[in-house]
Every structure is written in structure tokens, then in C-alpha cells.
Design a protein around this nucleic acid. Structure first.
Lengths: 108, 108
DNA sequence: ATGATAGGTAACCTTTAAGTTACTCAAATG
DNA sequence: CATTTGAGTAACTTAAAGGTTACCTATCAT
């Protein structure tokens, strides 16, 4: 893991991290509470959490010795922006198709 | 590259592949025409194309010895579905906030 | 104060994605 | 038909992501 400055695309490329996000979409959780759901060791989860945090997918509130993880929208926004570009692409393609069909109808 | 059956998340995790998609959003292109835009060798691009193809991000039309690549929506749809789930999450959070504020207003 | 518990850090190992070069094949070109 | 050109395949190398274990720190309970 080592270098924790992955971009959002690399962050969600890992299935374990996606599952962590999914768990957090149900409930706020501590590191150990998350780790229980995985085969991997707690340190491994801990590293994933750091990655998710650095990329803006979660925020963390320390309560005593516990770290409570909560979903955070920032990371998702970057992905939405990227996808929106292609949504527009498909939208435009449909528009053009519509124009073509209109032309055809009018000539008819 | 070797195993070309990456899931959509891993597919877009690679910056070169994202750039290929971006180029294709401007225009249909052949493999060589794509390779011109990169520092890497043509075989490398060729492999990326295979990955993108297998994940449903592009379709390919063979014209003679040329392969013409075009964007395809399938791959994007999986990502949209994934993001939509979290969009809903944020939407719900806002809704709940709205309810809370309404309650407060009514009690006032 | 002592132990148990929540968590981070360091050092290490393994796997694999991503790139390379060298080669081959098939379709254009002349 | 010889040659060039577009592209895929094979074998190999390298860098780094993801995991492990061992150890440390800090907080909570008794």
C-alpha cells in the first residue's frame, strides 16, 4: 500500500475498498467493526481506510481510542464529474440521431 | 496485462485507458492513430484496447487491416449504476435533513 | 497499576498490471 | 510478386499494490 495518494479511480478499483464503502453506506463503523467483515487482517483494513480517507471518500471522527468512519461525498463527486462528461457524449449522440430521424421524417 | 478480464473499475483505474476513452469521445480512431498520442509502444496501446473492448467500453470495426475503435456505452453503464447507489445515499441524507428541518419549523 | 482493547507503523513477501522488444501475419501498395 | 504498413502475440522485466506478521502506542476497565 505504502503510497496512500491514489487518485479516485484507483481507490475504487479495489473490491475490498468498494465493500468498505458499501458497509459504510449502511452504517457508521469503526475500523475493527469493518475488519470483522473481511478475511484480511485489521492492518490491511486500516490501510484501506487511509486510502479512502486521503481520496475524500470517508471522514473520520476519533472518539477515545475508536475511529468512527463515515461516508463523505467529495471522492464520489470526482467520479460523477468524469461520468457526466460521457453521459453528455451519449446524450449528444441521441440528439444527433433524433435530428437525423427528423430529417428523414420531413423529407418523407 | 496478460489477463484481459478486468472489471470496469480496474479498467478505468489506468490513466492511459481513460485518455484513450477521452480521445475516442472526440473521434473514432485506429490503434495506430491512438498510439501516436502516447509515449508507450503500439503493442501497449493494443493491449489497453483489448481490455477496454472486453469490458464493454468500446466496439471495434475491422476495415481491411485497420481496426476502428468507437466508444460503447455498456462499460459506462455499470459505473453509472454503482454511482447511482451512492447518489441515492446522498439524496436520502438530504431528505432526512429536510424532514428534520421541517419538524423544527413546525414545532416553532 | 495491570491488563485488555482499538488502532497505527514498519519491514517484508508475493502477485500482477503495465510496459518493453522481437517476431509473425495479413492486407495494401507499387 | 516484393515490400511496406497496421496490428496481434509471446516472452520477459519491473514497479507497486495488497497482503502478512511483529511490534508499538494510547485509552479504557478492573
Amino acid at each position: 500500500m505504502e503510497q496512500h495518494r491514489l487518485d479516485v479511480f484507483q481507490v475504487i478499483a479495489d473490491p475490498s475498498r468498494r465493500q468498505i464503502l458499501h458497509l459504510l453506506s449502511k452504517d457508521s463503523r469503526t475500523i475493527n467493526s469493518l475488519a470483522e467483515n473481511f478475511d484480511m487482517s485489521r492492518p490491511a483494513v486500516s490501510k484501506h481506510i487511509k486510502v479512502l480517507y486521503n481520496a475524500g471518500f470517508i471522514s473520520i471522527q476519533d472518539i477515545g481510542r475508536e475511529r468512527h468512519c463515515v461516508l463523505k461525498q467529495d471522492g464520489f463527486k470526482e467520479l460523477q464529474a468524469w461520468l457526466a462528461y460521457y453521459d453528455k457524449f451519449w446524450g449528444d449522440k441521441l440528439d444527433k440521431l433524433g435530428v437525423l430521424m427528423n430529417d428523414k421524417m420531413n423529407k418523407k
